[in-house]
């Protein structure tokens, strides 16, 4: 548990970047949400890439389970984790209804990608190609999805 610094609730990736526990929890949760099935810690570890220690991933999963953010089931000798769908949370439809009400919602909400025009698709594909050519590690995406 020492190598990943997981005991103190933070991890260090391959670039030597220290990241707070909250950010690592986000990333682990994101992997679980993106997957169709429950994942065992080894799968989560593999999906996140080589940067994080296995022990760190395991600790984060246990912590998320303790908080009730994920549920787990026994698969052989390991636990498989899946995110908990909060019954009190908003459904996608309710959220879209709230978002669509009024055209000036961007006054408050900052969205990652705004609405796109038809001709943007080709330009974006070209730009994505250029971006992938620039950082070689981008071509081989970790098989998480």
């Amino acid at each position: 548990m020492a190598e990943g610094g997981s005991g103190s609730g933070s991890g260090r990736d391959e670039r030597g970047l220290r990241r707070p526990a909250g950010e690592l929890e986000n990333e682990v949760l994101a992997v679980l949400w993106a997957a169709d099935t429950a994942l065992i810690p080894a799968q989560v570890h593999q999906a996140l890439g080589p940067g994080l220690a296995y022990n760190t991933v395991h600790t984060i999963l246990s912590r998320l389970h303790a908080k009730g953010a994920v549920e787990r089931e026994r698969v052989g000798r390991a636990h498989a984790y899946r995110p908990v769908l909060d019954q009190n949370g908003l459904t996608a439809r309710q959220m879209r209804t709230l978002l669509d009400r009024g055209s000036d919602r961007t006054a408050v909400l900052r969205r990652f990608v705004a609405e796109l025009g038809g001709e943007d698709e080709a330009v974006l594909a070209e730009l994505l190609h250029r971006a992938e050519a620039r950082s070689p590690e981008g071509v081989s995406r970790p098989a998480d999805a």
Binding site: L29, A30, D86, L90, A92, R110
Partner: peptide, 19 residues
């Protein structure tokens, strides 16, 4: 209620993220 820390994941096939 669905938040874990600062993150809220909404099960929706639409591609959206916002602050």
């Amino acid at each position: 209620p669905a938040a874990n820390g600062e993150l809220i994941v909404v099960p929706d096939e639409a591609v959206d993220a916002f602050a």
